[in-house]
Design a protein around this nucleic acid. Structure first.
Lengths: 336, 336
DNA sequence: TGAGAGAATGTTAACGTTAACATTCTCTCA
DNA sequence: TGAGAGAATGTTAACGTTAACATTCTCTCA
């Protein structure tokens, strides 16, 4: 009885049909050159006839590894960023000849402990945990000692390697970009207050302003949509002191720009705007939005590396991957 | 020597430490209730002490299956649609307690044969092949007999189950929607001519028009971007006979709408526009674009079902999953 | 107290593969 | 032709688990 369709043949079956030992059949299966051409041909023919499929289970039982990395995700895997990180992981895996064992968790089971508990019995040599920004058991989680574990998280963890986009660095880059162009009052328009991305971007913005000795004006908040950005843009349009706006995603940035223009202001001549995610390329006519682009592919690739080659030291590493500010046409020199 | 970190313990080690047989240790590992509480406790303690991790390889060698489905992808996994299908697959898998073994192929290795050849030696009970629209060896590919194989493709295959979004159905829905609102001349604005999505949507549009006895005007083509849509919109604005435009993606639709408005026409009062993908929700202020939304989650879920429960019959099934037209505010009754 | 039943635990063998070693074959060269 | 070398092929054992069966323990009840 074999895997899959239930009719598969083993090497023993192949060997019997080809009138050789299983070892010789194994040698053919693994491309050893210590087999005479006619013997090889006979074995190959037997394999084809029986539809032989090597048993992954038996092979890895012998080999002691799986050449696969586990990845646990929860929630919306197609959210911006997430999907590129997933792509970064699978691409790095493909390059090393690894497969990815993907495990989707229902939102109500999305804890590090549960993800890890399930992954432990799957065929993986290491695991990457990519749940929400901060899973409920983040602080108390202890990784299984037999499985190198990497958490994609902006926070440092006592036992596991962690990696994520540098949210604070994003804010610093944007604030500095504005400052270098003469802006002094740099507004922050966040998304939903409670979201992790919002909190850390806002914190970064505040810190950057303080570090540079600039005034921190009360931030405003939308709900990540363009319409909420539009409303906020209308408020900001009447505020003459506002020359630079850091919108915490692109949709809000677009909303703000449309509102400012509807209110008779020019972007970027009167007000400069920068968004985050660089998610609008080619989507909106005649809008070249300056935006901060995270390097999600690299986050994924490094997470994979950490899982396959766990670093030796006592302290687990915490890696923040910087992105880049893509300069387009919505930022100008401050003119007042 | 164990899997992963190379220090793991086997059930035999656990059993020795707990002073029981491996079978009793196995019973504890599998939650059998035929173990005395104090024995169970001793075994559990030994497991914890040794960091015991069950061997997937040994278990599936015995069980004869893996409870995992292989998924081969190539190219941009984050493209619209693709990611939702991936999500559909993983969600269905999670519900059944299956894992997904994801294999990313480099574009130059993205043939069905190569994907399948590699997957055959991974721990999967079935496979889903999701490469481009029509991989180069689509016609000649023969699936391994030991591995139920599903191809995500708009085309029928002689040996494998196939499934995809109903691209033709999309066109029919959109054309009928326009017709029901009195439109007679329904224009098609495609994306890149050679792309599969473009070809099949255009074909569906032509067929639907012919079926309804309507005039087929020469289609126009952009490159999927909003800017290309804007250019085409400017051409269409001067054509008084044009009251209904089927844009083959949302970005082009947006470009067209902006151009029409800049040319002094009203959308939808003067010209109605429908896009495809429903990808703009919340992204553009004050634009409620009617758009055809594919049911990617269902495509993924059904692909998973086909891979786990291959249908018996002689002819492999070919499933086209219908989407829905999401009516918003860019379609009105024809007024001329 | 001692038989008997049923619960708890143990032993054996097998899943399919391949490393390590053992044997047999084939060919070359004196 | 026959020894010897090296190529080709074969045998054995082990990876870790668990089903099937075997044995031992524990408790109840006459």
């Amino acid at each position: 009885m074999a895997h899959g369709s239930g009719t598969g043949a083993s090497l023993a079956d192949v060997a019997k049909l080809a009138k050789v030992s299983t070892q010789t059949a194994s040698r053919v299966a693994n491309g050893s050159d210590a087999v005479r051409p006619d013997t090889r041909k006979r074995v190959l023919a037997a394999m084809a006839e029986l539809g032989y499929r090597p048993s992954f289970a038996a092979r890895s039982l012998r080999a002691g590894n799986y050449r696969s990395i586990g990845l646990s995700m929860s929630g919306d895997m197609s959210a911006t960023g997430r999907r590129y990180q997933l792509e970064g992981i699978t691409t790095a895996a493909a390059r090393q000849g690894y497969a990815i064992t993907l495990q989707q968790l229902a939102d109500d089971a999305a804890t590090l402990g549960e993800a890890s508990r399930r992954m432990v019995s799957l065929p993986v040599d290491g695991q990457i945990l990519y749940l929400g920004a901060t899973p409920p058991d983040f602080a108390t989680f202890e990784p299984p000692q037999a499985l190198p574990t990497v958490i994609i998280s902006t926070q440092h963890h006592p036992y596991c390697a962690t990696i994520s986009n540098d949210q604070m660095g994003c804010s610093v880059s944007i604030v500095d970009h504005f400052i270098q162009r003469g802006h002094r009052e740099i507004r922050f328009v966040g998304g939903r207050r409670e979201s992790y991305a919002n909190i850390s971007r806002q914190k970064g913005w505040e810190q950057a302003l303080r570090m540079r000795g600039l005034h921190v004006v009360e931030p405003l908040h939308g709900d990540w949509t363009a319409d909420s950005g539009y409303e906020i843009g209308m408020q900001l349009a009447s505020d003459k002191s506002c020359t630079a706006i850091y919108a915490s995603n692109d949709a809000i940035a677009v909303g703000i720009i449309y509102a400012l223009r509807d209110a008779g202001l020019r972007v970027p001549q009167d007000v400069s705007v920068i968004g985050v995610d660089d998610s609008l390329v080619g989507l909106i006519p005649h809008l070249e939005l300056s935006s901060y682009r995270f390097n999600d592919a690299q986050v994924g690739a490094l997470a994979f590396d950490l899982a396959t080659n766990p670093p030796e030291g006592k302290e687990p590493p915490h890696i923040l991957v910087p992105g880049t500010l893509v300069e387009r046409s919505t930022v100008a020199l401050a003119n007042r």
